[in-house]
């Protein structure tokens, strides 16, 4: 009986539905580290992702289906195969990699033009804040031209996946937005 009620409850809150979240970004930005930081709360040693990693995790009574797609040039064209039904995109930027900010910006804007992602919320992690010489969140925001984004809920959060800083804050914002807009 208790089970029955709780599942009724879940259905009310939409918890039965899984939320699809993509983690994208250039290679070496820290996507896989963020994914496992979210799932098991630890830092794992990673290899460049050829393809993708997918994990299901519960967060604040929600079931999240998190896809971490490889960021290498050869794999970026395949991102689009996984856009359908996506509730949110987490875009990870290596804040120390000033040379490739431009590329990251291009990839980001190209991706956001996709029809399938029109309703998706965007969370940008200005990652690797623990490293010396990292750009601040506002500097990254400028480099990525985020202010140009219209009709979309977005936020940028300074983070360090290694130290675990900023990740939960960012995700909290994202979940609130999704709950407001999509559930």
């Amino acid at each position: 009986m208790g089970n029955y009620f709780s599942s009724m409850f879940d259905r009310l809150w939409g918890a039965n539905k899984e939320l699809r979240i993509l983690i994208l970004g250039l290679d070496g930005a820290g996507k896989t580290t963020i994914l496992y930081r979210l799932q098991i709360g630890e830092v794992v040693t990673t290899k460049p992702t050829i393809g993708f990693n997918v994990e299901t995790l519960s967060y604040k009574n929600l079931k999240l289906n998190v896809w971490d797609l490889g960021g290498q040039t050869s794999i970026r064209p395949y991102w689009r195969c996984y856009y359908a039904d996506t509730a949110a995109v987490i875009f990870v930027v290596d804040s120390t990699d000033k040379d490739r900010m431009n590329t990251a910006s291009q990839e980001l804007h190209l991706m956001l033009q996709e029809e399938e992602l029109q309703d998706a919320a965007l969370l940008v992690f200005a990652n690797k804040q623990d490293q010396p010489g990292a750009l601040s969140a506002s500097e990254v925001s400028k480099e990525l031209n985020l202010v140009e984004l219209k009709d979309r809920s977005w936020s940028i959060v300074a983070s360090s996946a290694i130290k675990g800083e900023g990740i939960t804050e960012g995700l909290d914002w994202l979940i609130d937005v999704i709950k407001d807009e999509q559930l």
């Binding site: 050829i50 393809g51 993708f52 990693n53 997918v54 794999i75 195969c81």
Partner: peptide
């Protein structure tokens, strides 16, 4: 041609 996309998942 694109089966390499499964590499990481298989390795895991």
């Amino acid at each position: 041609e694109d089966v390499l996309m499964a590499t990481s998942s298989i390795m895991k």
